[in-house]
Computed example of a mutant assay.
Amino acid sequence: MNSQRMPLKNSLCLLLAATIWGIAFVAQSVGMEYVGPFTFNGVRSLIGAAVLVPVLFILNRSGNKSSAATDSAIPESSSAPSEKAVSPTPYNSRDLWLGGIACGFALFAASSFQQFGIQYTTVGKAGFITACYIVIVPIIGIFLKKKCSPFIWAAVVMALVGLYLLCITDGFSIGLGDILVLVCAFLFSLHILVIDYFSPKADGVKLSCIQFLVCGILSMIPALILEHPQISSILTAWLPILYAGVMSCGVAYTLQIVGQKNVNPTVASLILSLESCISVLAGWVLLDQKLSIKELLGCVIMFAAIILAQLPEKEKDNK
């Protein structure tokens, strides 16, 4: 596979996912005023799974119709049964369920840290710190026997400088929210790599539905024990929860799985990292959250690191 050529469809899927996620930072911040972090993630994940059920039903019906049309088009002959018997089945249920459960656990861990972190930091800062996965993904690749050029290390240094300007306050202190979101960035890096492994082996919509179901169940367990959610509070926060459930989960994460299929994870993470820019704009327009000159400089340096981290992709030797 040539990782330098990304199909336009994949690029548009990932770009749309990044846009939805950028705006979702606002929904997550507003929703936290009414419900706890685990409750918010649990309800929105279960909504995301529920939204995909009718999609799966429609896709299965259309698939059955196309299969029936193909079968009816085969002329009756002694060779027809053998042709049907050797029809390819690219996916199997084992990879689907194993991938869905693995993605669900990774998503639960990452989204939990992100949701707690958003309580203590701004939408813009949360978006940019989350985008650190663009540098973390290729670094983890070192342990997966993938080469790491000097461009990557330069990007790491630049990202650390940007993080300092963005997160470190007076007196060399760092906010709790910044630390939590930084842990979330590492966990989302693992989520991207898990999707990279399983997306070519399973149907994207089914994989997405299972991961939301797993994430929703894992989130609701601590929510019921620690937060004691009330239906009235959930209904009060219906708009941000509905956006996060339908758009951020049901639509965007499915677009990520579909868009990442057979695409280099580092290249995909570059497009997905644009959610950081969109989150800053969304926080400024919708919540009037403005960044200082120092914080803006940190954002610029971090985005430069994001771009620099991709340069080695253009210099890979053809095997």
Rank of each mutant, 00 (worst) to 15 (best):
G177T: 05
I210R: 02
S67P: 10
S219A: 08
I134E: 08
G298E: 03
G175E: 01
C215F: 08
C299P: 11
L272I: 06
R5W: 12
Y164F: 00
R44S: 06
P75E: 09
L272F: 01
S292I: 03
A85E: 05
I47F: 04
P222G: 06
Q230G: 02
L255S: 08
A126S: 07
L239H: 09
I306A: 12
F25C: 02
T19Q: 12
F105M: 00
V267C: 11
V285Y: 15
G171R: 09
G117T: 05
C184I: 13
Q256A: 13
P222V: 12
A68V: 01
G22D: 06
M220V: 07
V53C: 01
L144Y: 11
I140S: 04
L308A: 09
Y253M: 13
Q115V: 13
A17D: 04
S45N: 03
Y34A: 02
I152S: 11
G175A: 01
I118Q: 13
W284M: 09
H191Q: 12
V51Y: 04
T39P: 02
S173G: 09
V267G: 14
N2G: 07
I142K: 02
P240K: 14
V53H: 04
K145I: 11
I241W: 14
P81D: 00
F188L: 06
Y34R: 03
F303K: 07
I225C: 12
Q230C: 08
